[in-house]
């Protein structure tokens, strides 16, 4: 059997906002020894409904099986698997640099402008630069900033919105109707 290659997948999971769900979802990955590259949880536009966005590298087959297992969790309203071209997505990163590096030359300022980043705050000791974008853009800026003594760097998980026309509210109505079939 030929081996399927690992690819990056975005899982978008709609759930009730209940405690313990994060654990229930992540153990599905742990059990199959799939590493989670990034994870984000936040409330959606519908009160009481949360969205998990999880990025994994996996084969398509494995990813599909994991999504099916996630759908079985009682409080999961829906789980969707997307490849890169099926979602709009962003990440956000913060870089902390000594302020004196900024003032000593205009190289940093140029980097900030050319990469579409922005300066979040300038303090006496340090300056915070903020950049949103895709992972590789954020990491490329990090590499470029490294010579200027990056003291701390942090990057968020991915947030993603699918290109499908489905609306959360109408999806929830569908779910409600299906749950009454008996």
């Amino acid at each position: 059997m030929q081996k399927e290659e690992n690819k990056e997948f975005t899982l978008s999971i709609l759930t009730e906002n209940k405690s313990g769900l994060l654990n229930r979802i992540t153990i599905i990955f742990t059990r199959r020894k799939i590493n989670i590259e990034a994870i984000n949880v936040s409330e959606t536009e519908v009160h009481g409904v949360s969205r998990f966005t999880i990025v994994v590298r996996s084969t398509h087959e494995k990813a599909v099986k994991v999504v099916k297992q996630i759908r079985k969790i009682i409080e999961v309203l829906g789980a969707f698997l997307y490849e890169e071209d099926e979602v709009h997505y962003q990440e956000i990163a913060l870089y902390k640099l000594p302020t004196k590096m900024l003032t000593s030359s205009n190289q940093i300022e140029n980097l900030v402008r050319s990469s579409g980043a922005r300066v979040l705050t300038v303090g006496e000791e340090y300056t915070i630069i903020e950049k949103t974008g895709h992972s590789h853009e954020i990491l490329s800026l990090l590499e470029q900033l490294k010579p200027f003594d990056v003291q701390e760097f942090i990057k968020s998980g991915r947030i993603a919105i699918s290109k499908s026309k489905r609306q959360t509210v109408s999806f929830l109505e569908e779910m409600e109707a299906l749950s009454l079939v008996s």
Binding site: L178, S179, S182
Partner: peptide, 12 residues
């Protein structure tokens, strides 16, 4: 309990 909206025990 007659239904849970996030749970569809009986597929159509």
């Amino acid at each position: 309990c007659i239904n849970i909206r996030s749970y569809q025990p009986k597929p159509v």
